[in-house]
């Protein structure tokens, strides 16, 4: 299956940009969710859960979400999940922690790890 990785995580961009379709932009966690919601409205289907990981939306700054490359009619399940995820992210508020390089590196690493396991499965399916 062909897919698009929507991300603000430079580690995901560095690892996959050469071989996969990576929609990378320096943006906030919430903006990644909004960008994904907009893509769902234009017919892309959600392939990974937007709230992947137990690291909280007001704790990490990085998020990677995968959607189908193919556009079809609006997928209501995808829309429901992204809207609920946006509500949850709003509830947690904005990250106000002072980030060090080490912390940014660790948050990026966990986000990358969560998505790596999915890429292996996607690459093994039609």
């Amino acid at each position: 299956m062909k897919y698009i990785m929507v991300t603000n995580n430079p580690k995901v961009y560095e690892k996959y940009n050469d071989k996969l379709n990576v929609d990378y932009k320096q943006q906030t966690y919430k903006q990644v969710l909004i960008r994904t919601r907009d893509m769902i409205h234009s017919g892309h289907k959600l392939l990974t859960h937007p709230l992947s990981g137990s690291v909280k939306p007001n704790e990490t700054v990085f998020k990677t979400i995968i959607v189908s490359e193919q556009q079809n009619t609006l997928d209501l399940d995808s829309l429901r999940i992204i809207e609920q995820s946006l509500e949850t992210a709003k509830k947690f508020g904005v990250n106000q922690h002072l980030m060090t390089e080490d912390l940014l590196n660790d948050f990026g690493l966990v986000d990358l790890s969560l998505i790596e396991s999915v890429i292996i499965k996607l690459e093994n399916s039609l």
Binding site: S52, G53, S54, L109, V110, S113, L114, I115, E116, S117
Partner: peptide, 18 residues
């Protein structure tokens, strides 16, 4: 069982639950 990736895993008889 939690089974998402780095720091989020569980093992069943030594097998990664994901």
């Amino acid at each position: 069982l939690q089974s998402q990736g780095l720091l989020h895993d569980t093992h069943v008889y030594g097998v990664d639950a994901k």
